[in-house]
Design a binder for these strands. Structure first.
Lengths: 192, 192
DNA sequence: AGTTTCTCTTGATAAATATCAATGGAATTT
DNA sequence: AAATTCCATTGATATTTATCAAGAGAAACT
């Protein structure tokens, strides 16, 4: 199995060698070149995806052609579309690679099996979901209560490493502001 | 046990009578008068709370004294602060009743026990979490891509019954806009 | 190496939304 | 029933953010 994924699993739960083997046996690796889609709008998403290398984004494109980035994911994060996975309906999101990347994929069916057969896996998964929810609540909190500048500063605190890897305009999109506004915010805020 | 809660459980999972009794045995009922706190900023939240009657809101108060409503919960919804529950740290949120209400409370410890001992309960809980996450993702999506008017219209679709129970100004707060702006949006949008 | 494409910045202007202030009606309290 | 508080609306104005357009440097491509 990809070393990054194994290390992650060992850190997040105490799995026996047999269990690790079982997880490995249902994991497939997919390489993505920069700009390649992992999921395209209209397709049904059927996996759980763990990034072992690189960086991807989840986004929508509106009628005017503007992209809206829902989230980023880098090494050791999970990505995918839970909504489409859960409902079986076509996704409204696109996921593509911002760098050459590598992801570990487990189909929904195999993933559910792992959850059923390996309690530690189930616990790990619930914990991840719990944390993802908490993070998204806190993001909503900042949308309802913060100015563009505050959102940006909070973003820097939460994800200090992302600005080095992701174009600034995409960070603006993630924050729900325009690239120009973010540029001006940086000019003002960072000189303080 | 409170009938509303029992009905909910029966609908969400197939529980045996013994299991229902077990759930009942760890459930306590709390009545809230309008405006009464269920959780106050600075306190640690230790429960899972199911609303059997009434309506509550979760909100923060900023330095200027403005309230920012993170969410509402009515009958058959869960409420609480997952972040404080998870971390054991004081909550940054307030939860209070918008009407005279009644909630069913289960402590974290008892809740975890139910999850461990009753698989159907565990499944139900994971499902709720999964759905909550999906809902919050979709709310983030509308924050990054929609105008105030679009957010309001989407809100009406998602929660058609809330405007009848919740003052308009609070809905504005939930949407991250001011009460005045919402009033103007309604004037324009609803005459179309 | 030269060309193209991306990315960020900046300026001018427009649009969206917030703020402040006042009013009147509805609901709640006494 | 009167008094008080709450709530939604409206107007005038300020602030924030978006849009459009141009340019310059960096990165990617051939």
């Amino acid at each position: 199995m990809i070393e990054v994924f194994k290390t992650y699993l060992k850190e997040k739960g105490s799995f026996s060698d047999v269990e690790l083997k079982q997880i490995e046996s249902v994991t497939t690796i997919k390489k993505l070149r920069k700009r390649q889609y992992l999921l395209q709008e209209g397709d049904v998403w059927k996996y759980n995806a763990f990034i072992t290398k690189g960086c991807v984004r989840t986004y929508t494109v509106d009628e005017k052609g503007n992209e809206h980035i829902l989230n980023f994911a880098v090494e050791n994060w999970w990505t995918g579309d839970r909504e489409s996975l859960f409902s079986g309906k076509p996704s409204v999101y696109n996921i593509d690679a911002l760098e050459d990347s590598q992801v570990a994929l487990i189909t929904k069916e195999n993933f559910n099996l792992l959850c059923k057969e390996i309690p530690a896996f189930n616990n790990m998964v619930t914990l991840i979901l719990e944390k993802s929810f908490i993070v998204s609540q806190s993001r909503i909190q900042s949308f309802i209560s913060s100015s563009a500048e505050e959102k940006y500063l909070k973003f820097l605190e939460t994800f200090p490493h992302l600005p080095m890897r992701v174009p600034q305009g995409m960070i603006a999109s993630y924050l729900g502001i325009t690239a120009e506004t973010l540029s001006r915010i940086r000019k003002n805020a960072l000189k303080k």
